[in-house]
Design a protein around this nucleic acid. Structure first.
Length: 137
DNA sequence: GCCAACGTTGGC
DNA sequence: GCCAACGTTGGC
């Protein structure tokens, strides 16, 4: 199973909205970037991801799960763009802030640190575990 | 609110 | 196919 990170601005789509969707989940639509789309094409049902609030908050707040693999993005007629569906699994015990991530040298290679503009990105097994443990303290 | 970094577009 | 111009994102 692979791990990912989904980034959203609270004013566009927030964790609270994602949680409210429950088991039904929601399309991760609106992505107009080839790299991000390509990562979504690699996702499989059951993969998990972090839900990150960009801009004002800058923290990972929850865990989501892929419930539908890549399909056409319903918000555009342009068939280049695809998206997956995700549902909220749970909130993190404590949000993990970007400052904490940047302050941990074992996370120095995270895409979030190296390419902050990419909205859908892969997370390694190690990064996943480290962030989970940071969230529990 | 600014601006650096990055991606995309379009003229040549 | 190169690259300048432009638009967008997101950290600060």
């Amino acid at each position: 199973m692979a791990y990912w990170l989904f980034k959203s601005e609270t004013s566009t789509w927030s964790w609270d909205q994602q949680v409210a969707k429950g088991e039904t989940g929601e399309e991760w639509d609106g992505v107009r970037n080839y790299q991000a789309r390509n990562f979504m094409r690699e996702m499989r049902i059951g993969d998990q991801g972090f839900f990150y609030h960009s801009q004002k908050h800058r923290e990972i707040v929850g865990i989501v799960e892929v419930i539908a693999e890549a399909h056409p993005d319903s918000t555009t007629q342009d068939e280049r763009w695809e998206c997956v569906d995700i549902k909220a699994v749970k909130s993190l015990p404590q949000p993990v802030h970007l400052d904490q991530i940047k302050g941990n040298e074992r996370l120095a290679d995270m895409v979030l640190v190296k390419n902050s503009r990419l909205s859908v990105q892969p997370v390694t097994d190690d990064e996943w575990k480290i962030i989970l443990s940071m969230s529990e303290t």
